[in-house]
């Protein structure tokens, strides 16, 4: 191998090495578990519900405090007045968080009743949405305004 050829190979392999971390970096950002994605409520709902538009309904019962002193811990309770066979999943969205999607619970008939409770963080005063995905393909939701005195997103 002469000098010119050697330099060429080194240059090419160097370029490949330089490109590959950039590629994997951009790929990783798409993957799950890489921190919060910034998106709006509409985008988040579209992603999670796969394009379905939820309709407001009395059947979804969302229990949340109307005033939460500490935004870092806001208890949320969701139950759906429907037989469990009809409910596939319960999703919780917080409108003005950096990423509105918070949690999704995928239920099965073994759960007995469609009920889910957890504690979430809220950045500021906003609406909280609970969406129930039904097995017939539709989605129903309830919303509640929660006033937050101290935000909980850092």
């Amino acid at each position: 191998m002469n000098r010119r050829k050697f330099l060429k190979t080194v240059a090419i392999s160097g370029a490949v090495v330089a490109v590959s971390p950039a590629l994997t970096g951009s790929f990783k950002a798409e993957a799950k578990g890489e921190g919060l994605k910034k998106r709006t409520l509409e985008e988040a709902m579209k992603d999670i519900l796969k394009g379905k538009k939820p309709v407001e309904s009395e059947k979804v019962k969302l229990i949340a405090p109307s005033i939460a002193e500490n935004g870092a811990v806001v208890p949320i309770k969701v139950s759906v007045v429907e037989p469990i066979e009809n409910v596939k999943a319960i999703h919780i969205f917080a409108e003005k968080n950096p990423d509105p999607w918070t949690v999704s619970a995928h239920l099965t008939p073994q759960n007995g009743k469609p009920y889910f409770a957890t504690r979430i963080r809220l950045a500021k005063t906003m609406n909280v949405y609970a969406v129930a995905e039904l097995s017939d393909g539709s989605a129903i939701m309830a919303k509640k305004a929660v006033k937050v005195t101290i935000g909980g997103c850092g």
Binding site: V103, A105, H106, R121
Partner: peptide, 10 residues
């Protein structure tokens, strides 16, 4: 039950 969780859970 399977629960998908985001970072905005307490």
């Amino acid at each position: 039950t399977k629960i998908d969780v985001n970072a905005s859970v307490s």
